[in-house]
Design a protein around this nucleic acid. Structure first.
Length: 566
DNA sequence: GCCGTTTTCGGCCCGACTGTTTTCAGTCG
């Protein structure tokens, strides 16, 4: 797919145009780049159908440029810009404090083209001599260049959320705090987080700031002010605390929750309706008309309340205006968990432990899916041990309120066959299959492999379908269209693995799968009773994908769920 | 360069902060 390449070129053209002081075009290029990035369709197909101009933000001129790229592999206007300013814009502007304009000044005056050049220029004390820049800028550059290399690493939500909640609880216990809430991408349940934003309403601002910066878990105080403080915790998490005036609580929460793109659309809508929206409130001719709560702001703009998870400017504004937002799945809708491991294979607790915890969570059923087959993963069960385990499960079922089902997590071989005989699969309540080796097959082979396993009449659920590990392993590549369509046709359920290191399918792929009519299940893949509690991460991902409870297999009662399975 | 419940022209999100100025441009979120 050429989507990413074309988007990158447009982003870069935007930077160069902006550096030259061109008005408005940069925004147009960026808008188009973002649409293309998140298109969900192969841009070459769109081109072939002659529908480039239907992409939001793409008009006459950009459609020509896209066509040119697809036909010839390059864009003349881009080559021309690049020749004039052969600068690594993306690299240079990744340094905090350097934008397109500064990058261009540095190129013109000091021939800085790359981060390396920039580092050298700063070390040689050249920056301070440039008009418009100065000593502080030079020092900033030196300080931020190293930081730029180290940062950019976003923290997985599984680490950020518990830590942030811990801070939130402490704040709530403090006598000076009336209200505290997590905002930012964490509230939107994004899979990785840059830093955490916490908003507070305080009776005694200076005491609250003292309390915050002196918490035991604070490693370093980055800034301490009247309205905003920033710290780094022992675990490396960067947390910002902001004091919010009572009357602006809702508009501030909305502003700091983002996403940025959602906020921009909200402000545009406000203007269209003769108002103005900022973090301080919604105003009509200087007069505040809303701001205390988010609900109020959305209502005054004629919108349904938009849940944080889908504030991504990917259709939620239009749906909210038509009052047609989906009723997103909630944690309380979950009636069971269909993937987990016990001591029988590589888990750390017993069947009974899992059932007990599931009862605490209010579930109706769980399915034990220890590893099966002959692959050498983690103490896989053979037929004999499956039968022994069944006896133990029966025993637990005699006294457990939660119905315990027996399944196996089996392996999808290189050719799409599975490594467990049909007669054994037939005896199980649920069969879940996943890829555990040969991740690097090319797209064609991998697609074939997936299509083949989807035809297997005993396979109910494909677990962690893309096998990605956040920040660690890239997803396997297969043709999403073909595979999702096939899964829908065959009635095979695709999983959102709720392990915060996986979240697989991710939000975008889940949304795509739903578009093809697939059913999803949200399972924890727990290897201990405790981690059955990871369900909310999966639910967050499903919500980001606009999933309702009708889309989720394990929101069904036991009876209906079993009927849905192959 | 795009776009339209301000529709083929004239707009295009908002406010804070920083470092450089001497009233503001650039950058960021």
């Amino acid at each position: 797919m050429k989507n990413a390449e074309i988007a990158r070129i447009f982003y870069e053209m935007a930077d160069i145009l902006e550096a030259q002081g061109v008005d408005f075009k940069p925004r147009a290029y960026r808008n188009a780049a973002m649409s293309i990035e998140t298109l969900g369709k192969d841009i070459e197909d769109v081109y072939k159908k002659g529908k480039l101009k239907e992409i939001p933000g793409v008009g006459e001129s950009l459609a020509m440029k896209i066509s040119e790229y697809i036909e010839t592999g390059k864009i003349k206007a881009y080559e021309k810009l690049k020749k004039k300013f052969p600068v690594d814009m993306k690299g240079l502007t990744s340094v905090e404090g350097i934008g397109a304009k500064t990058a261009l000044v540095l190129y013109k005056k000091l021939a800085v083209k790359s981060l390396k050049d920039l580092h050298r220029a700063a070390k040689n004390k050249k920056i301070r001599k440039i008009k418009g820049l100065g000593l502080k800028t030079e020092r900033n550059i030196l300080a931020n260049i190293d930081f730029a290399k180290e940062s950019g690493k976003r923290i997985p939500i599984g680490k950020a959320l518990p830590s942030a909640i811990n801070v939130l609880r402490k704040l709530e216990e403090s006598s000076t705090v009336e209200k505290a809430e997590i905002a930012g991408s964490l509230r939107r349940m994004k899979e990785t987080i840059g830093d955490v934003d916490i908003l507070v309403l305080s009776k005694k601002p200076s005491n609250t700031m003292d309390f915050f910066t002196k918490m035991k878990t604070v490693k370093k105080v980055l800034a301490k002010g009247k309205e905003k403080s920033a710290v780094i915790l022992d675990d490396g998490l960067h947390v910002d605390l902001r004091l919010i005036p009572k009357d602006s609580w809702g508009s501030a929460l909305m502003y700091f929750t983002g996403s940025k793109e959602h906020n921009v659309e909200m402000r545009k809508l406000a203007i269209k309706k003769g108002m103005k929206l900022s973090e301080y409130g919604l105003f009509k001719k200087q007069k505040m008309v809303a701001g205390k709560t988010e609900e109020e702001v959305y209502r005054k703009l004629g919108l349904q309340f938009v849940p944080p998870e889908i504030r991504q400017n990917s259709g939620e504004m239009e749906a909210a205006a038509k009052k047609k937002l989906p009723d997103l799945v909630e944690l309380k809708d979950i009636k069971g968990d269909l993937q987990m491991h016990t001591k029988w294979s590589d888990g750390s607790d017993t069947v009974e432990d899992m059932a007990k915890k599931a009862d605490e969570l209010g579930y109706e059923y769980i399915c034990i899916t220890d590893h099966g087959g002959n692959l050498k993963i983690a103490n896989s069960l053979d037929w004999k041990r499956v039968k022994k385990q069944r006896k133990e499960i029966d025993k637990v079922n005699r006294k457990s309120k939660v119905k315990v089902l027996q399944g196996l997590e089996i392996n999808i071989r290189k050719d799409g066959t599975v490594d467990v005989p049909e007669l054994l699969m037939k005896e199980l309540d649920v069969v879940v299959a996943g890829i555990h080796a040969n991740f690097k097959q090319d797209e064609k082979a991998m697609t074939k492999r997936m299509l083949k396993v989807l035809e297997n009449r005993y396979v109910d659920i494909i677990v962690h379908p893309t096998c990605r590990m956040i920040n660690e392993r890239k997803p396997i590549s297969f043709d999403k269209e073909k595979v999702f369509q096939k899964a829908a046709d065959e009635g095979v359920v695709l999983e959102i693995d709720a392990q915060p290191s996986r979240l697989d399918l991710n939000d975008a792929n889940s949304k795509k799968a739903l578009g093809y009519g697939c059913m999803l299940s949200i399972d924890t893949d727990a290897h201990s009773a405790e981690t059955l509690g990871y369900m909310h991460y999966g639910v967050g991902t499903a919500r980001r994908a606009w999933a309702t409870k009708k889309d989720i297999l394990n929101c069904l009662s036991l009876k209906k769920m079993m009927k849905k399975l192959k």
